[in-house]
Design a protein around this nucleic acid. Structure first.
Length: 137
DNA sequence: GCCAACGTTGGC
DNA sequence: GCCAACGTTGGC
């Protein structure tokens, strides 16, 4: 099972909104690299849910409930969307600053490619971040 | 609000 | 097919 990280601006669609809705269509991705990752997502894959612009932290875990399909909001029909559902909120959110400060995460794709809205997370990175989320500050 | 990173567009 | 200009994202 693969792991991912998805970014969302909480002012537009926060993790709490996903919890409220039960699931959501993850569309609007207009970047080829991000779209490739969406296409690679499999049913049951889990993703870290990161708040960009505000918060700047991983706040929860979501899972893929529908694999890639054509994004209806893309008139050109070039890009795809998936459906995500909430799994759980993190006990203690993991901030961008914490991730940057952790040498084990130095190669994280989301740290190296700031603008990529959907990125892969290795098993090791996944374990490190979830461990950080269990620590009480 | 600014600016760096980087993807996309369009002229040649 | 190259590359400069432009637009967008996102951290600070």
């Amino acid at each position: 099972m693969a792991h991912w990280l998805v970014k969302s601006e909480p002012a537009k669609y926060a993790f709490a909104d996903l919890v409220r809705d039960g699931k959501t269509v993850w569309d609007g991705v207009r970047n080829n690299a991000a779209a490739l990752h969406l296409k690679a997502m499999k049913l049951g894959d889990e993703a870290l849910y990161y708040h960009s612009q505000e918060g700047l932290e991983v706040v929860g875990v979501a899972k893929v409930v529908t694999e890639a399909f054509l994004d209806a909001s893309d008139p050109a029909g070039r890009f795809v969307a998936v459906e995500l559902a909430p799994v759980r909120a993190l006990k203690s959110p993991v901030t961008l600053a914490q991730m940057k400060a952790n040498p084990a995460l130095a190669d994280m794709v989301m740290l190296r490619q700031v603008r990529l809205s959907v990125s892969p997370v290795t098993d090791d990175e996944w374990a490190v971040i979830l461990t950080m989320a269990e620590e009480t500050p």
